[in-house]
Each structure stands twice: as C-alpha cells, then as structure tokens.
C-alpha cells in the first residue's frame, strides 16, 4: 500500500512534468498548426543551463532563472529563424526541419558539455523527505515539483480562460483565419505562444534536472511521451493535456513498478526485469493507440 502511494505520487510528478511540456506543445500544435519536434530540445537546454549555472554560482534561484532565460531565448530564436517560415507548409516539412534542429541542438550540447550525464545536487533545504502519511516518507523535492506544476497549471488556466490574451489564444485554436480577419496581429500572438511554450518546457527541464540526470538525448525521451500526452488529450486542448499528462504519467510509472514483479512469478528474475521494462514502455503507446482508435481526435478535442 505504501509502495502504491509512493508510485502514484511519482506518477503524478512525471505527469506534471509532462503537462509542462505538453501544454506548450498542444498550444503550438493547435494555434499554429506546427509539429515541433524541437520542443524536447528546449527542455534539454533548460536543464543544461540550470545545471551549469547551479554549478557555477551554487544559487538555486539563479539556476532557475538561467534555465528559463536560455530556453526562452532559444525558443524565440527557433521561432524567428526557422518555424516562422513553416507555418504555411505541410506537416512533413515541419517534421523534417525540426528534426534538423534536434540534431543541431543535441550535438551542440555535446560540444559544450560532453556526453557524460551531469548530476545536479539539491540544496540542503530541498533534499530530504517528509512524512506525507504516518510512516510514509516522500522526497521534498518531488513534492515541490508536483506543487509547482499544479500552480503553473492553475496560472495557465487563469491566463487562457480569464485574460484577453487567453481569449485570443482560444480563438486562435478554434479558427485562426477568423482571428486574423478580426485584425489581431497574429504573428505577435504566435511569437507569444511559442515563447510561453518554450518557457514552460525550460521550466520542466530545470525541475527535472535533479530527479533524472541531465544528458544529451533527454529531450527526445520525454518528447515522444509528450506527443502521446498531446494526442491522447486532443490536439490544441490544454485541459486534454492536463488529463492526458496525468494519465500517461501514472500509467507509465505504475506499469514500470509492477510489471517486472508480476513477470518474476512466471520466469527467472533477470529476464523478467528486461521483458517487464520493455512491456511497461510499450504500455503508454498501447494506451494511445486504443484512445485514437476509439476517439480519433483525442479525449478532449479542441475543435469539436
């Protein structure tokens, strides 16, 4: 029971990380119609920048700031130099160009920081654990990720549902041409949305640094999971991204925790661990295939 609770919380923690990435990605999908494979690169850049600043200055807040600034600036540069030219193109061109961006950024990080994974130490006040229930300790930092992630989700909800910019974003996701026809500077809106998405991805990267190791390729690992989230939730829907992220995070974590153990009952340990890990990795993709077959537009389609 204790293990289950712990794993559920781990799942929620993965879920909020996925939400930070997925919300940006789904907005970029929904509003600009762009498939941005390089979204994972922004996450990686945020993580690397924060790890670098943390190692140089030892300050948590400077590290956070560094990660956000690096991801935000890179995101704006990507939008300005490459993606802006691809809005009107078909998906294939977008996939290929952003694939090129991934190669560029991954190798760039290798040149700057090398291939060795970087481990980020937590400051004393964030390491350690608290008892969430009597006898059930849980790491403070993971709890902090959950709380901050949920705060961001609430902030995003407020921004999208209660402000003028949010109204334009929602309108843009529903009918881009109509928004343009009403005289809104759509290019500015695009840049804003892309910048917001980049910041959220960078934030996710900064938060993920101390939990997982910071390495080249971390972006693609989570990117593909994020795509699963976005497609399950429904392209363009923030609410869908939230539910999708939590669903994928919890399902993935629980499968990873329990499938190898179940297999151990029927085969020897080393084989069971390997097969279990593989089957657990397949789980979320199976989930996505099922959702798409039952509801081809995702659970909460934005354009319904």
């Amino acid at each position: 029971m204790t293990l289950l609770l712990e794993q559920l919380l781990n799942g929620v923690q993965l879920g909020v990380t996925l939400f930070l990435l997925g919300s940006g990605l789904t907005l970029i999908f929904g509003i600009m119609g762009v498939i941005n494979l390089a979204h994972g690169s922004l996450y990686m850049i945020g993580a690397f920048a924060a790890a670098f600043v943390a190692a140089e200055t030892g300050s948590v807040f400077l590290a956070l700031l560094g990660g956000l600034v690096a991801a935000g600036l890179t995101g704006m540069a990507i939008e300005f130099v490459v993606l802006r030219r691809l809005y009107a193109r078909d998906h294939l061109d977008q996939v290929l160009a952003t694939f090129g961006l991934i190669l560029f950024f991954n190798q760039g990080m290798v040149i700057l920081f090398g291939r060795q994974p970087i481990f980020v130490a937590l400051p004393p006040f964030l390491s350690g654990a608290v008892e969430i229930l009597p006898g059930v300790p849980y790491p403070v930092y993971r709890l902090l990720i959950i709380v901050l992630g949920l705060l961001v989700a609430v902030g995003l909800w407020f921004l999208i549902q209660r402000t003028r910019i949010g109204a334009l974003v929602r309108a843009g996701a529903t009918n881009r041409e109509m928004v343009r026809a009403l005289g809104v500077d759509i290019r500015l809106l695009y840049t804003l949305v892309f910048g917001l998405g980049a910041l959220l991805a960078g934030f996710a990267g900064v938060m993920a640094g101390p939990v997982y190791s910071v390495n080249v390729g971390m972006g693609e690992q989570i990117l593909i999971l994020t795509f699963v989230v976005v497609v399950i939730g429904g392209v363009g829907s923030i609410r869908g991204a939230m539910y999708g992220a939590l669903l994928v995070g919890v399902v993935d974590t629980i499968l990873r925790a329990y499938v190898p153990g179940l297999l151990r009952a029927v085969m020897d340990a080393s084989q069971a661990d390997m097969l279990g890990a593989g089957l657990a990795s397949m789980g979320v993709y199976l989930l996505m295939a099922l959702v798409l077959l039952l509801k081809p537009r995702g659970l909460f389609p934005a354009h319904a």
Partner: peptide
Amino acid sequence: VQFIMITLAFAQM
C-alpha cells in the same frame, strides 16, 4: 497529425 503520431507510437511499441 494523429496519423503521424499513431504510426510513431506503433513503431515505438
């Protein structure tokens, strides 16, 4: 987009 993603998902599986 969904077609792109579902073919990717099956390949990942």
